[in-house]
Simulated scan of single mutants.
Amino acid sequence: MHRIDGPGAAVGGFFTEGDPVGGVAATVVTDDWMNDIQENIMAVLLAGGVTPTKGRAADLADAIRASTTGRLLNTQVFTSSGTYTPTPGMKFAIVTVQGGGGGGAGTTVPTAGNASIGAGGNAGAFARGKFLAAAIGASQAVTIGIGGTAGVSANGGGGATTSLGALITAPGGGGGNMFNNAAVPNANGNGAVSAAPTGGNIYSSIGAGATLALGLTTAVLFGGGGGASFFGPGGPPNVSGNVGNTGIGYGSGGAGAATVPAGGVLAGGVGKAGIIVIEEYA
């Protein structure tokens, strides 16, 4: 492409309206300059795979969008298991996976002078990876890890693994431990943290641990809070006499329960299921 250089062009290749009184001619729009502009525009349409249509004003805009790489095409979010099918034109995707959170421990009825305290469940693992369209293929199975079950007179259940096919996986967090018939003051730590994720070529981490369950006296007890995930907090801790709170953020742990001798059997909180977020780019 070139600047206008026909008769009457100003210095530097600019247009001028001319000055009839002063004898300065207006710039002449030449065929070679117009053809040059036309062919440059046609090259953009060709690169974008757009067939030029007379009278259609969006041809150039469509071609620029189609030929621009690296722009965000679409975001697909999965909170239940299913199948991921890439959006047409996707060249690569950033995949975020969050494993299911562990459930909080429940309680039994302790003997006089003792307490039953349950720890919260741990958060599931977290991973983020970049994958080319060729690696993803036509589709991939989506598996969302369920949250761990609430413990009832038992430890909380472990969260399940979230995965996108075999490309990237995030294991679930461990359930909270129950500490029954414990002398006070005492504390109860959480259960096993999640296993390490796989496929997280951008970032990966095991899940965060839950907070301690505390028994200060037989009248002052706290169930442990659930472990927080990348997507939000776990179940908040509760005082004795209340069931454990459910995990809040995707993949966070449920809280534990706490019981005094005069209390009854209480359930812990359910862990929150995981999630997959897929950001697709041209």
Score class of each variant (00 low, 15 high):
N188D: 14
T259W: 06
V21K: 15
I248T: 10
G174C: 08
G224D: 05
N40G: 14
V184Q: 09
A134L: 14
G268K: 04
G241D: 06
T87H: 12
A183I: 07
N190R: 04
S81E: 05
A66P: 07
T53L: 15
N177E: 10
G271K: 00
G234R: 00
A115T: 04
T87S: 14
P233F: 04
G156P: 03
G225Q: 04
S116H: 01
T107V: 07
T143K: 11
S204H: 08
G191E: 01
G224W: 02
P261H: 04
A208V: 05
P110T: 08
G223A: 05
G189R: 01
G18S: 13
G173S: 02
V29I: 15
G254H: 08
P88I: 07
I136S: 12
I275F: 02
A125S: 11
K272A: 14
N181I: 01
R71F: 09
E39C: 08
G158C: 00
Q38D: 14
P7Q: 13
E17M: 11
T96V: 12
L46I: 13
M34T: 13
N181S: 13
W33I: 03
M90C: 13
R56E: 13
S240K: 01
G200S: 09
F179E: 13
A10W: 04
T68S: 15
G215L: 08
G103T: 01
Y203R: 07
F14K: 11
V260G: 04
G209L: 08
G13E: 10
T96Q: 10
T259M: 09
G256T: 09
G234P: 01
D32K: 09
N245A: 15
L132V: 06
N181L: 02
I146V: 10
N181F: 08
A258T: 05
G147C: 06
G247P: 05
N122F: 01
Y203N: 11
L132K: 13
G174F: 01
A154V: 02
D62W: 06
G223Q: 02
A105K: 06
T246F: 13
V193L: 12
G264R: 00
A63E: 06
G264V: 09
M42Q: 14
K272M: 12
G49M: 13
A61I: 14
A134Q: 14
M34N: 10
S240T: 06
